[in-house]
């Protein structure tokens, strides 16, 4: 999970404070949190990430280690799964694992068609790990 998705998840766990609330509480410059959460590339200084980690009550390493983990990596995996018509396995942070073929994916979610034909919309911010299933 990228730092942005992880922050999004942490925000959900904390009850959904707004980015402005978080910026006010942590002293992160206005707009910076939104950039960190929404941008696809690495964002945020060490100080900002440390402040956010303290706010969300997680180790700083949880954020700093994910900074270089680009959110694009999940996008790339989803695209490869579509192009190769192979199922992808998504491990969610709540412990669920969902395996299916990607029907579409966008900014916030991905639709997987399960083997039984049912469709599940997975929120991207819940995806912790992923793996393209070998045919």
């Amino acid at each position: 999970m990228s730092a942005s998705d992880y922050l999004r998840y942490l925000r959900a766990v904390k009850g959904g404070p707004t980015p402005q609330d978080i910026e006010t509480a942590t002293g992160v410059p206005a707009g910076a949190y939104r950039q960190i959460e929404q941008r696809y590339r690495s964002m945020g200084t060490e100080e900002e990430l440390a402040s956010l980690a303290a706010y969300f009550e997680v180790p700083t390493e949880e954020l700093t280690s994910r900074v270089e983990w680009s959110r694009k990596a999940l996008s790339a995996a989803l695209v490869v799964a579509v192009e190769q018509d192979r199922p992808i396995q998504l491990a969610l942070r709540n412990g669920h694992t969902i395996t299916g073929k990607v029907q579409w994916s966008d900014l916030g979610a991905a639709l997987l068609k399960l083997e039984d034909g049912h469709e599940v919309v997975v929120q991207r911010h819940m995806v912790d790990r992923w793996q393209i299933v070998e045919a």
Binding site: A12, H118, V120
Partner: peptide, 20 residues
């Protein structure tokens, strides 16, 4: 933010509800 995933609820006579 609070949603992990969702799906259209299978019909009662459907097969394998939420088996994934």
């Amino acid at each position: 933010l609070a949603i992990a995933f969702y799906q259209v609820k299978p019909s009662p006579d459907g097969e394998g509800a939420d088996q994934d």
